[in-house]
Measured scan of single mutants.
Amino acid sequence: AVSDRLIGRKGVVMEAISPQNSALVKVDGETWRATSGTVLDVGEEVSVKAIEGVKLVVEKLE
């Protein structure tokens, strides 16, 4: 799938994300809905860990 190429890519949080709420991230110039197990604020850099349906699963870039 096209989205599989995004695993391992870096992105930027466009809307705050919490474990209860998905929000938008920008990866390679494209906007995607994403979820995370932690709270992520706007502007934080993230890494794509997986794809669940049409959502990216991201975590904060260390």
Rank of each mutant, 00 (worst) to 15 (best):
V46L: 01
L24V: 08
E62G: 12
N21D: 08
L24T: 07
S3K: 09
Q20E: 11
D4Q: 13
R33H: 12
S36N: 04
L40K: 00
V13W: 02
K55A: 10
E15F: 09
A23W: 15
Q20Y: 13
A23P: 07
P19V: 09
V48H: 00
D41M: 15
V13H: 00
V2E: 08
S47D: 04
K49M: 12
K49S: 07
V46G: 01
A1S: 11
S47C: 15
V39K: 12
L56N: 00
I17K: 13
S47H: 11
G8L: 04
K60A: 07
L56I: 08
L6H: 02
D41P: 06
S18I: 07
K55Q: 13
A16P: 10
I17Q: 14
G37T: 14
A23I: 15
L61C: 08
S3R: 10
G29W: 03
V57G: 01
I17S: 15
S18A: 08
L61A: 08
K10H: 10
E62H: 12
E15L: 10
A16Q: 09
V48L: 02
V48F: 02
V57P: 00
K60V: 06
I51L: 07
T31A: 07
V46A: 01
D41C: 15
V58P: 00
E30D: 07
E45A: 10
K60R: 12
G43N: 05
V25S: 02
K60N: 04
V12T: 08
G11R: 00
V57I: 11
R5D: 07
A23G: 15
S22P: 09
I17D: 13
K60T: 06
R5M: 08
G8I: 02
L6F: 06
V58Q: 00
V13L: 08
T38D: 14
E44L: 07
E52G: 04
E45G: 06
A16M: 12
T31F: 14
E52R: 10
V39D: 11
V54D: 15
V54Q: 14
K26W: 14
V25E: 02
V2H: 10
D41S: 14
A16W: 15
R9H: 07
V27N: 01
L24R: 05
T38A: 10
S3L: 14
V13E: 00
P19S: 11
K26G: 05
V27S: 02
I7F: 05
L40F: 05
A23D: 02
V27E: 01
K10V: 13
S18D: 08
V25W: 00
G11S: 01
D41I: 15
G37M: 14
A50P: 00
L61W: 12
D41L: 15
T35R: 06
E59A: 09
D41F: 15
I7K: 04
L56D: 00
I51D: 02
T38G: 09
G29Y: 04
V48P: 01
K10F: 10
A1Y: 12
R5P: 05
T31M: 14
G53Y: 03
R5T: 08
G43F: 04
V39Y: 14
T38C: 13
V2Q: 09
E59N: 05
G11Y: 03
V12W: 08
V48N: 02
W32V: 00
V57N: 03
G8T: 03
G11K: 00
T31D: 06
L24G: 03
A50K: 07
Q20L: 11
E15S: 11
G8F: 03
G37V: 13
A23Q: 05
K10Q: 08
L56V: 05
E15K: 09
E45V: 13
G29S: 05
S3P: 13
L6V: 05
E59S: 07
K26E: 10
L40H: 03
V46I: 11
V27T: 01
V46R: 00
V58E: 00
P19T: 11
V27W: 03
A16V: 14
E45N: 07
V13D: 01
N21K: 12
E52T: 08
L6I: 07
L6N: 01
G8P: 02
T31C: 15
G43V: 01
I17N: 14
N21L: 09
E44G: 05
A16D: 04
W32L: 03
L61G: 05
S22C: 15
V42F: 05
I7L: 09
V58W: 00
V42T: 05
Q20G: 15
W32Q: 00
V12F: 09
A16E: 05
V54N: 15
E52P: 01
V57W: 08
M14F: 06
G37I: 13
L40A: 03
I7M: 06
S36G: 05
Q20R: 10
S18R: 08
G43E: 02
R9I: 05
G53A: 04
E59R: 05
E45W: 15
G43K: 02
V48Y: 02
M14Y: 06
K55V: 15
V25I: 10
E15T: 10
N21I: 08
K10W: 10
Q20P: 14
D4M: 11
E45S: 08
N21Q: 11
E59L: 05
G11L: 01
L40V: 06
T35L: 10
T35K: 07
K10A: 06
D28L: 07
A50D: 06
E15G: 08
V58K: 00
I17F: 13
D41T: 14
G8M: 04
G8D: 03
